[in-house]
Amino acid sequence: MEVVGQDNRVAARDYIELNLKDEDAMKPLNQVQRDHLNSIVRSISTQYEIETWEIWKYTVHRALGIGSIDEINQSKYPVAVAELEQYRETLKSRRDQNAILDRVHRVVKEKALQTELDRHLLIEYGKLEINDLDQQQLLETLRHVESFNTEALPEEIQNHPAHLKRLNIELAIGVVLGSLLTVLIYEQWFLVPH
């Protein structure tokens, strides 16, 4: 390379980045690698009842920015394997979370604890919907509803959850009447001249 004049000179503080393509990394997958990827996809498909083409299209192709397995080269092979394993873990986590959620719903129904569940979600997590909880929060909620002692409640509430609504209405009426009475007494004693 010929350098003329003051341009194109390199100082000690400068550096040059050269991207030399590794020819091995650009080679297409070998048959063993293709078979391995196909094996992972079939395993996920069988385990979670998802069509293989969906796994390829929405997991591998999307992550790698490709259209077919033929476009996966040696450098993308580890990424493809990692994406598939991550997808498997995500599906496993969803399955586990759904199992916990189903158990919570079953216990709540058996013990008639919908009001208690709503109270727990709001107080503990600041949420109104159980579907907004993560897996750890779901486990804590399951422990709460399974250990909740309905026998400590009065007999009429244990046997008739509809009484909770009536008790809440009675309480609200009592609060309103008490407030009105307080206002009337206040007006009589402090606002009317004696």
Score class of each variant (00 low, 15 high):
residue 38 N to Y: 02
residue 44 I to W: 02
residue 23 E to A: 08
residue 60 V to H: 04
residue 23 E to M: 09
residue 73 N to Y: 09
residue 36 H to M: 10
residue 37 L to C: 10
residue 66 I to V: 15
residue 77 Y to C: 03
residue 93 S to K: 06
residue 58 Y to V: 01
residue 91 L to I: 09
residue 83 E to I: 01
residue 57 K to R: 12
residue 22 D to P: 00
residue 46 T to K: 11
residue 72 I to H: 00
residue 52 T to P: 08
residue 52 T to Y: 05
residue 74 Q to E: 15
residue 93 S to I: 00
residue 70 D to W: 01
residue 72 I to A: 04
residue 35 D to K: 05
residue 68 S to Y: 08
residue 75 S to V: 12
residue 97 Q to R: 06
residue 94 R to V: 05
residue 81 V to H: 07
residue 88 R to A: 15
residue 37 L to R: 07
residue 28 P to S: 03
residue 65 G to I: 01
residue 47 Q to E: 15
residue 60 V to S: 06
residue 62 R to M: 09
residue 50 I to T: 08
residue 65 G to A: 04
residue 70 D to Q: 05
residue 41 V to M: 10
residue 99 A to W: 01
residue 96 D to A: 07
residue 53 W to A: 07
residue 41 V to C: 12
residue 47 Q to G: 11
residue 58 Y to N: 11
residue 36 H to N: 13
residue 42 R to I: 00
residue 28 P to A: 00
residue 67 G to K: 05
residue 76 K to C: 04
residue 79 V to F: 13
residue 43 S to L: 08
residue 37 L to A: 08
residue 38 N to K: 06
residue 79 V to L: 15
residue 41 V to F: 11
residue 54 E to V: 08
residue 39 S to E: 14
residue 26 M to D: 15
residue 84 L to C: 02
residue 46 T to R: 10
residue 73 N to G: 13
residue 38 N to I: 02
residue 84 L to S: 01
residue 34 R to H: 05
residue 32 V to H: 01
residue 89 E to W: 00
residue 80 A to R: 09
residue 71 E to C: 02
residue 73 N to M: 10
residue 36 H to W: 03
residue 62 R to A: 15
residue 53 W to V: 14
residue 74 Q to I: 07
residue 91 L to P: 15
residue 56 W to F: 08
residue 98 N to Q: 13
residue 73 N to Q: 14
residue 99 A to H: 08
residue 53 W to Q: 13
residue 58 Y to I: 00
residue 75 S to K: 10
residue 64 L to E: 11
residue 23 E to I: 12
residue 63 A to S: 10
residue 27 K to Y: 09
residue 77 Y to L: 04
residue 84 L to Y: 02
residue 94 R to W: 06
residue 57 K to P: 01
residue 97 Q to T: 07
residue 48 Y to D: 14
residue 95 R to L: 12
residue 83 E to C: 06
residue 65 G to V: 02
residue 89 E to P: 03
residue 97 Q to V: 00
residue 33 Q to T: 05
residue 70 D to P: 03
residue 23 E to F: 03
residue 86 Q to H: 06
residue 50 I to P: 06
residue 26 M to T: 14
residue 81 V to A: 12
residue 45 S to W: 07
residue 47 Q to D: 15
residue 34 R to L: 14
residue 65 G to L: 02
residue 58 Y to L: 06
residue 99 A to G: 12
residue 48 Y to N: 11
residue 31 Q to E: 15
residue 38 N to P: 15
residue 40 I to D: 03
residue 87 Y to I: 07
residue 37 L to V: 12
residue 24 D to G: 05
residue 67 G to F: 03
residue 60 V to L: 08
residue 66 I to N: 13
residue 67 G to L: 09
residue 84 L to V: 04
residue 56 W to E: 09
